[in-house]
Design a binder for these strands. Sequence first.
DNA 1: GGAAAGAATGAACATCGATTCATGTGTTCA
DNA 2: TGAACACATGAATCGATGTTCATTCTTTCC
Lengths: 147, 147
Amino acid sequence: MNIDSCVHSEAYDGRMGHGAAPPASRVPRTRLTADNAAKVAATLQALATPSRLLILSRLREGPLPATELAAEVGMEQSACSHQLRLLRNLDLVVGTRQGRSVVYSLYDNHVCELLDQALYHVEHLRLGLSDTAATEPERESAGAPRV
Amino acid sequence: MNIDSCVHSEAYDGRMGHGAAPPASRVPRTRLTADNAAKVAATLQALATPSRLLILSRLREGPLPATELAAEVGMEQSACSHQLRLLRNLDLVVGTRQGRSVVYSLYDNHVCELLDQALYHVEHLRLGLSDTAATEPERESAGAPRV
DNA sequence: GGAAAGAATGAACATCGATTCATGTGTTCA
DNA sequence: TGAACACATGAATCGATGTTCATTCTTTCC
């Protein structure tokens, strides 16, 4: 499929005002292929667990030896190591040996920002302070969306 | 053995150059608590599966009736409906009845941007074209990170 | 060399979650 | 009213995955 399309045939052109949202905007829109989605999902899953989220969050504040890291996020050494391996394989963190210990840090800025963005948006999502009001008339109209 | 990939012992104030990266930057940094992480993880997990990623991606282009949506993302009606329920509960999508069908659309712009950001960063992560190059000499330094 | 610290690895286990199958609910139209 | 369409829902299944336990590997220091 093509890349760059944000396209939206004609629907959703509205995309109104927005308020608090961060810059963002000029991000290239990649059309997701079934194949592509799998890879993306695999990476995003790294952020889909409390333990790894905590690990990355701590690393955002600076590099840390494996053991200290485990202690700070409150998990066992082994469990933490397993997760670190996963994060390493996804190129989200790097570990460099330093004496007896292996110091871990975020791979690069993309990781850092991905984390930030995720936290930011999720927080705003859960708070329900949407800026949808204009585009989406009334939610509650139908009979379907009712648990 | 350097550490300093993204260094910042003092805590990431640096946030260097960056090239293609989108604005971002001015996102508030929320310190993750163990409790908080669970909630965030729950929401982010919505983006951690190919099926839901495809669903959201299609909805980004405009509202769509459930059945059509299922067809476009290539999944069975039931499976799609289950995922839509999940996405609804997380306030990521809304479904409004319209005649026989229920038309689904993204909840608001935060969802759209969260998606965009995720795709953007992930793509750059997987491609390895990090902007770390200058900062992170050789990855392979340690003995640890070797599958 | 040998002991101990720091970390990685493997197996086993338990849990969660995505899909399928079958069925129920709501809506339109004859 | 009843058939057909459009979705939702529940139960069951099966695979994926996070954690624990025990072990191994690496490095340091005596």
